[in-house]
Computed example of a mutant assay.
Amino acid sequence: MDLRIKNVRKDFDLTPALHDVSLDIASGELVALVGPSGSGKTTLLRLIAGLEQPNAGTVYFGQDDASRLSVQDRQVGFVFQHYALFKHMTVLQNVGFGLTVRPRGKRPTAREINERARSLIELVQLAGFEDRYPSQLSGGQRQRVALARAMAIEPKVLLLDEPFGALDAQVRKDLRRWLRELHDVTGHTTVFVTHDQEEAMELADRVVVMSRGRIEQVGAPDAIYDTPASAFVHRFIGESVELPVYIEGGMIRLDGIAIPLSAADEPDGPAALVFRPYDVAIDEVDRATYPGIAATVVASRWHGRGRRLELAVGAGGHSMEIDLPPDVAPPVDSTLSVWPTRWTLYRPSGASLSHPTPAAAASMVSPIQQMAVAQ
């Protein structure tokens, strides 16, 4: 089932939650909605489900306008973070519940409901648990039951709201791998909300990054990570280093000192230099000369399989953290010259604030240039 959201707006009282959001999702696609709290991702999911109604815009299921249909008429499967299983029902009864409450004319026979529920329990790898109650299951097992129950009604669209948010890290990792395999078998059109960037990047065919009720970028996980469309996406998806710089005569200056990165043909003015912590080259230099970005090592610690350095940068009280191979360990208080090897400049927009503070200006950016230089 294709899913299309067209120019949707949603307000709660006088507070806008979604601003003119449009999104097309292909049949059988698994799409992740990510963003910080208040970005509108759960509101968008609830609008698709019919749990909220838009103030403007349309939600299409295929070619049909579903905007004013009830939850039941939309035929969606919904999985919540906290399972929402019926405690007094067995696993088998929970999975078959959505079929047992259908209107009499659309309700399968008791035998058909039993067979479908047992088939789904086997599909989610819980065969033998049919007669257990939710209290007798682990968190991961309960979420599998919730997913089987959502699929029992043969949904047009499957919606998952932070489905693994209440589980510990290792269970989350196991379940998301299992969910991807299950999706490939069943082929449901699936939309899920998560605050876990790694979860979204691993699971989804496409990722939708949201902020302040708007879609910042939509794309395949690799494209979102490698070519972020804005400084917000660059900061939110993966780790990043951000330094306030000034462009002057095609040169990039940090605290008035030119650094060896070119901004040819860019107009003069403030910008943000953004790069990944591992996209750097370093050289130990004398304190009096620094052809790259001057930085002093404040702290050094193990990080994953490498070493992370905390650096004090320039004369403006800036700081950054970079990642190096485990065998590279400049001592604390040593001075380094740091070169970003892959970086992006983002220009402040200045659209909504006449006198933005540095913090506000950093959040009001659009991309102007992306470059890579050889190490």
Score class of each variant (00 low, 15 high):
169 A>P: 00
183 H>D: 12
130 E>M: 00
231 A>L: 06
6 K>I: 09
281 A>P: 03
14 L>Q: 15
41 K>I: 10
121 I>C: 03
181 E>A: 13
362 A>F: 01
268 D>Y: 00
59 V>T: 02
117 A>V: 01
214 R>D: 03
285 V>N: 11
227 T>Q: 08
369 Q>N: 04
290 Y>F: 12
34 V>G: 04
30 L>Q: 09
313 V>L: 08
108 P>E: 15
203 L>V: 15
315 A>N: 12
231 A>T: 02
96 G>F: 04
358 P>K: 04
91 V>N: 08
242 E>H: 04
173 K>A: 13
362 A>K: 14
144 R>L: 09
334 S>H: 14
207 V>A: 10
259 I>W: 06
257 I>V: 15
191 V>Y: 08
93 Q>S: 07
85 L>V: 07
345 L>R: 01
103 P>R: 14
36 P>K: 08
183 H>E: 09
61 F>R: 03
118 R>A: 02
225 Y>G: 04
194 T>W: 11
110 A>L: 09
167 L>N: 07
354 S>T: 13
256 G>R: 08
17 A>Q: 09
236 F>V: 03
88 H>P: 14
351 A>M: 02
124 V>K: 05
258 A>Y: 02
33 L>T: 05
358 P>V: 06
75 Q>E: 10
220 A>M: 11
304 G>L: 03
100 T>K: 15
176 R>V: 10
226 D>H: 02
24 D>C: 02
